[in-house]
Write a protein that binds this DNA or RNA. Structure first.
Lengths: 346, 346
DNA sequence: CTGAAAGCGCTTACAG
DNA sequence: CTGAAAGCGCTTACAG
């Protein structure tokens, strides 16, 4: 015999009330024609019994699980918790549960994670892909959150425009020599940001990009990036491609006795949790996670509602770009007039 | 008619192979007695067809969903992503999916989230409760991750012992006047940590606790904690109750021209992502998330496997405490001999 | 070793 | 307005 559930089911409510299960189902869902009075009685009784509908039964019957999958590369990376939260908000507002799968930054794991989600019967999924992965067609609708430079049905922040915001801000403050600090030349997000910053250079401005190998300091022993030296060479603004790198830059400069923002400005990207907490608080650029998550989830939900499941379905035909917003805090300020040499040595 | 799935089901494999669904099911699961040869044929054919078992059907039949719920207060809080990741690892290694529910720090939402997870048919759940919440008994096994000071079946890091590690470390370095910095007097985690630090004070040592109202700086305009002044008063060590506060302290001191670790030491808790990244890298105390998650998940899985679902079942009779580990980095060093006054003014 | 049958809980045409 | 019945896909005793 199949095991029965702990709680009451439709049939128990039905017999206990002397009506049919169909009527109970209709009354509870408000779908079939049931007299107002009976609806009342049934709902009351169901609540009394603490009836909880079985998702398994419903899913089997309707072919819908009411669950969305979320695949991300590494939730411990400080950028993703916010987006995961925004997706959970949006999904749960739309009545969906969220099944997470952390692909641990690994492509094979990502593929496997996607398969597992399909097995679990998700109605659709949102994938934040590992760097430049193409998602092989799956058996359910997929929305991708990535860079605009990724081809396909993607929603994303406009990282390039975010870069322009930074460039404009620094230009307005009179900075002419900008050191861009990144840690991953393969990242399309970082490349888009660099592209935006460069495109925002005005006549007489000049930028140079420093790629850091390792963000952590080796064994805690410290291996400075030589930023104080860069400041001496004439760079007055340090534009990091993420707040984590901005933090690295900010603290190294402070430790070296370079004052931020009096001597040099530091900016970041992403408005991560510590940005408003550090001294000086960090000027950065924020993406509207709620908006991005909302677009992805509602595109997904619309597809699920409209169509039956089809092979490798993608939910957005066009790429959606969501504007990033500049947050000016204390770490950026007017450029100091160049000291002796106006042209930094390279 | 009920909608049929996109992919093949047992019945299709069965007819296509001229055997019964029971045999196919047995062959695939390896349970009933099926001849080796037939098993081979069936599995091959299933793979060829790209058969994916329906979780809905299985769940309905077995009463198990193969999914665990994870309820947490705020996944954007930097402490939780790591634990969420560890839980996802452990669960997925045990063959379970993880449905997340972010309670947004709100107790009502937390209750609702738990109900929703039950509706979705999770086999068990892990709750990281909002501050000092008691979990009302639910219809499925529950494991709680919290402080040891929480009563009930809880697994947790030993925050008190973590505090002792910090106190011992600072004492060994010769520090006598310790300023403890916290931001939440209601938090049992922070109180346990304070308790541990205080308990580790040696004769001649003295500590004072500073509770910060707001971690962020108001509107980015800056509202210093007055730590430089505290340093002048004779405090040589600043023990923050979390790395975020440590970061606040570290950058404020640096900005004020106080050198860390030459002038004063700064320590944190939790080994968050930026701890090894800042200059100087941060001495902190780490909890073994993998261990905690492993204990919670395996206790849950064992309960699920052993018993049928019962009302408000709790999975661990005893509180499990997992030791925290001191990570010494550059932000802590030998105490400077006290300047003029050895007794700090309070 | 293999198959026929029941049943998990639900929803949805359809008949009354 | 209400009910009887079919069926979603699976697993598990049970019979052969």
């Amino acid at each position: 015999m199949a095991p029965s559930r702990s709680g009451p089911n439709l049939s128990r409510i039905a017999t206990s009330l002397g009506v049919s299960v169909a009527t109970v189902s209709n009354a509870l869902s408000g779908k079939g024609r049931v007299s107002g009075q009976l609806i009342e009685r049934i709902r009351e009784h169901a609540a009394e019994l603490g009836y909880v509908p079985s998702q398994a039964g419903r899913a089997l019957r309707t072919g819908r699980s009411g669950v969305l999958g979320l695949v991300l590369p590494d939730i411990a990376n400080p950028l993703f918790p916010k987006i995961a939260q925004a997706i959970e908000f949006a999904a749960s507002a739309a009545g969906y549960g969220v099944l997470i799968a952390d692909s641990r930054g690994d492509i094979a794991t990502q593929t496997e994670a996607i398969d597992r989600l399909v097995e679990r019967g998700v109605d659709g999924m949102i994938v934040i892909p590992r760097r430049a992965t193409r998602i092989s067609s799956t058996t359910c609708p997929v929305a991708i959150i990535d860079t605009p430079s990724t081809p396909g049905n993607t929603v994303s922040a406009d990282h390039w425009q975010g870069g322009r915001e930074i460039a404009d801000h620094l230009a307005d403050l009179g900075h002419r020599h900008i050191l861009i600090i990144g840690n991953n030349q393969e990242s399309s997000v970082q490349n888009d940001r660099v592209g935006g910053i460069r495109a925002g250079m005005r006549p007489g401005m000049h930028s140079e990009t420093l790629w850091i190998d390792r963000l952590e300091q080796d064994g805690g022993r410290g291996c400075p990036l030589g930023l104080a030296e860069k400041a001496r060479q004439g760079f007055t603004a340090f534009a990091a491609l993420s707040d984590l790198q901005a933090l690295r830059a900010l603290t190294e400069l402070q430790q070296a006795g370079v004052n931020v923002p009096a001597d040099v400005s530091v900016t970041g990207f992403d408005d991560l949790i510590w940005s408003p907490v550090v001294t000086p608080s960090l000027t950065t650029v924020r993406m509207d996670m709620d908006r991005i998550a909302g677009i992805a989830v509602s595109a997904l939900v619309a597809t699920i509602r409209a169509n039956r499941i089809r092979e490798g379905m993608l939910v957005t035909a066009e790429i959606e770009r969501v504007a990033m917003q500049l947050i000016v805090r204390q770490s950026s300020g007017p450029a100091k007039p160049a000291p002796e040499t106006s042209e930094p040595k390279t």
